[in-house]
Amino acid sequence: MALQSLDIQARSATTTAVPGVRETLDVAKLIDISKCIGCKACQVACMQWNDLQGEIGHNHGDYQNPRDLNDTTWTLMRFYEVEPEPDRLEWLIRKDGCMHCADPGCLAACPAPGAIVRYSNGIVDFHQEHCIGCGYCITGCPFDIPRLSKKDEKAYKCTLCSDRVAVGLAPACVKTCPTGAITFGGKDEMIRHAETRVADLRERGFVKAGLYDPPGVGGTHVMYVLQHADRPELYGLPKDPTISPLVELWKGAAKPLAIATMALVGLASLFHYVTKGPNAVSREIEKETEHEEEEQA
């Protein structure tokens, strides 16, 4: 087996069991939005560690740059100017990127065996060498994360630095954050840490502060501490994310149902032939036709 820290627990388009004997630690990254100053050191560190060179874009009059995630931008600082209460302006800054869902919609939707895996430590990783470029992961993701590259037609997203984590290092963004807004460790430990942060924020007047670890996708391995956990939309986050019921239908019931229907029609035809025999021209009509022919001749 490969590195224990890269044991695979779920694999796209695979219907048999994956190796699952060893039990590894569930890891998580905790992003404390109340501590983030929007310096983008993490965004830079991500590009540097992963050797990503984006195109130089345009200034749109705010700090968000580039405008959106893309094949070379796996994490992006999103800036929101909002008024949670009238006349109370807040500048909310969220580090966007893959949430590393315990129940990943991207993996459920992916048709290419092994192109998307979930390691037993919880990291969801894309293996571009198996990627066929269909973009179904984008269709499956409840957080609008994966991006297809125009350059090579493969899908890319945050790896949670699976390569670093595999050898006991923290992700590059965590390592670089100057305020300690991003922490990394065991998921339980991160939840406990979040609880102390939430208690602190509540004391300071953010009575709705809380942890964003949405249960609809089985919880995530990237979690946020939000000042307004009752309104994740303020940060551009979905309130109760789940894999879309359409995706569930497409990748769930539809598949066995389709196979059963096609097999049934095929078998029914076969048995029809076996029981009824061919539908050949009857003797009478054949004789009648021969008779006509002779008459005309």
Partner: peptide, 12 residues
């Protein structure tokens, strides 16, 4: 994306 999800179900 919501269109694409519908399209996937309808197409298959």
């Amino acid at each position: 994306v919501e269109w694409v999800r519908w399209a996937a179900v309808v197409h298959s």
